[in-house]
Amino acid sequence: MVLFIGLVDLATGYEFTLSILYLIPIFLTTWIVGLRAGIGIAIASTIAWFFMDIFAGHEYSHPFYRYWEALIKLTIFVIFGAMLSRLKQALARSDERVNRQRERLEATAKLVAVGEVASMLAHQINQPLSAVVNYNKSCLRRLRSGKWEPGVLEEIMEHASEEAARAGAIIQRVREFVRKREPSRSPIDANPMVEDTLSLMRGEAAEHEIDLVFEPASDLPKVDADRVMVEQVIMNLIRNGIEAMRDTPAANRELRVLTAMNDAQFVRISVRDCGHGISADFAQNLFQPFFTTRREGMGLGLSICRSIVEFHDGSLWASANPGGGSSFHFTLPVAPART
């Protein structure tokens, strides 16, 4: 292609400067193969132009100017190539960002779905349970009134058992539904993952006048985790921390996220707040589903977090800070070394 352009340039003569067309193969190569190949083509184009120029017999007032012109052409070609390469990288990055954003949305949607399932479940189980209560009361009232026949009572109790079994069947269905979701784990670096999550939470933290500080440990091995799920855990713990510091003086509101080796097999991620801490009677129920100290909220956050962490074979626990506030820690297994 370079040669072809050179020949056309030669044929059309001095009046048409077609050397700008060399940019086409340079662009194509840079876009498809990469910057290095693009630079190669730029050099080839310059050489082609140089010889075609000699063939065309263009006169210069000084022979040096031919070299000078070639140099300028080369520089322009390379600059254009480099700019195109940067543009391509930026596009790729923003694509990746969009994908990540979508993944996060999906994860959030999943959590919302969990909430909906819980509420639907409550409604569906309420039906048969209410029926069981009614049948039992019906039996009791008949027994107490003294006017009853064994056959009638037997039939009512039969119905009550059926309804109880129905409640059981509903729970079984939900179990199967939950089991179907298969997350995917892969070796990932904990620090950039935490950093990315923090960048997402900075806005929310700033709104509450909270300093969000990251203290990464160096030389952490990769962990074996489902990135989207673990990010949800970190976000949830940070939100809890923000909530816990609601009544802390603004000057002391600091939320610290730390990574460290827990032992040889696990990396530990900790979220430390300076909030009101956890009272002893709450500590027991902290991870129970539907336990909450807030008015809004289902009380599913920490119990879902724990499920996610335990799915990764890690553990999630809370501790009190010596200087006040509380810390939540969870561990993720170190990814097995590739063999």
Binding site: A131, N134, Y135, S138, R141, I156, H159
Partner: peptide
Amino acid sequence: PGFRDSLRSL
């Protein structure tokens, strides 16, 4: 139907 019938019984 289950709930309806239980109400009738009660």
